[in-house]
Structures are given as structure tokens and as C-alpha cells.
Amino acid sequence: MSDLLPPDAEEMRAWAEAARAAFPAPFAALSSDVRVVVEEWPDDALLDEMKIESAFGLTGLYEGAALTERSVDHPEPPSTVTLFRRPILDEWADRGDVGLRALVVHVTVHEFAHHFGWSDEDIARIDRWWE
């Protein structure tokens, strides 16, 4: 990343992949089949479906069935973690109290937590990030 330009989608994705690579056992193995993508913005249909008024309100998304909801009889196709680059950049600029890479890692870990079957409430109990 240059001093004048924010990271592009590929650099942000590389940060997310590095975060996943650092997961401890058994989470590293359990996350290996999840796709990680970076898009500029969430689309309007997704925002409508989630009842989110502003695209700036969604920095990441987990799509798929949590591991706790899968079974041998009903395996799921690979899941996806999507990071939304522009909302992350906006949140980083607004916060001013966290590094950009740290924010990307946080959003990545939060979305993977949903893959592991944790609810937002479960995550909040162990991660006081937003306080």
C-alpha cells in the first residue's frame, strides 16, 4: 500500500487470508474450504434483504451454512466470506483509533466466527471490539 492510496481489493484479500492462516487449531482446518472475496460495495438487493439502510453499514458478510448446522447427510457447498472494501475504509477513517489492517482482520475473524456457528451475541461476549 502506498502512502497515498488505500489498499486495493487484492491487498485487502491478502490481509484476510493472512488472518485465516493464523487461526489456531482446529479453526484453521475448519476454515480451509471457505472462499474469501473482497467487493467494493454490498449491492442494493442484499441491503434490502438485510434491512440495512446504508451500504456503509455492512463491512462483511458470511454466506453459507455454519458448521454447527451441517451433517454428513446434508453437506453444504463451500461458504463465502465477503469483505466490503469501501465500507471498511470508511469505518477506518471515521474511527481513527485502529489501524486499517487490524480492522480488516477483525471483520474477517467476525465473519469466520459465523462459519463456526457463533451468533453475533456469542462473538460480542468474547470480543469487546466495538466498546
Rank of each mutant, 00 (worst) to 15 (best):
S2D: 13
D3W: 07
L4W: 11
L5I: 14
L5V: 15
D8K: 05
D8V: 11
D8R: 13
E11R: 11
E17L: 14
A21K: 07
F23W: 10
F23T: 08
P26N: 00
D33V: 06
P42I: 11
A45E: 15
L46R: 12
I52C: 11
S54E: 14
A55I: 07
F56E: 15
F56P: 03
G57I: 05
G57W: 11
G57V: 10
G60N: 00
L61Y: 07
Y62C: 05
G64S: 02
L67F: 03
T68N: 05
E69G: 09
E69C: 05
E69F: 05
R70H: 09
V72C: 09
V72N: 10
P77N: 07
T80D: 01
T82I: 13
T82F: 03
R85F: 06
R86A: 14
I88P: 07
D90R: 14
A93G: 04
D94L: 09
G96V: 03
D97F: 15
V98G: 04
V98S: 09
G99E: 15
G99A: 13
A102V: 15
H106R: 14
H106N: 13
V107D: 03
T108S: 05
T108V: 01
H110E: 04
E111H: 01
E111Y: 03
F112L: 00
H114D: 01
G117T: 07
W118Q: 04
W118Y: 10
S119C: 09
D120T: 08
E121I: 09
E121C: 01
I126S: 07
D127R: 09
W130Q: 05
W130M: 06
W130F: 04
E131R: 05
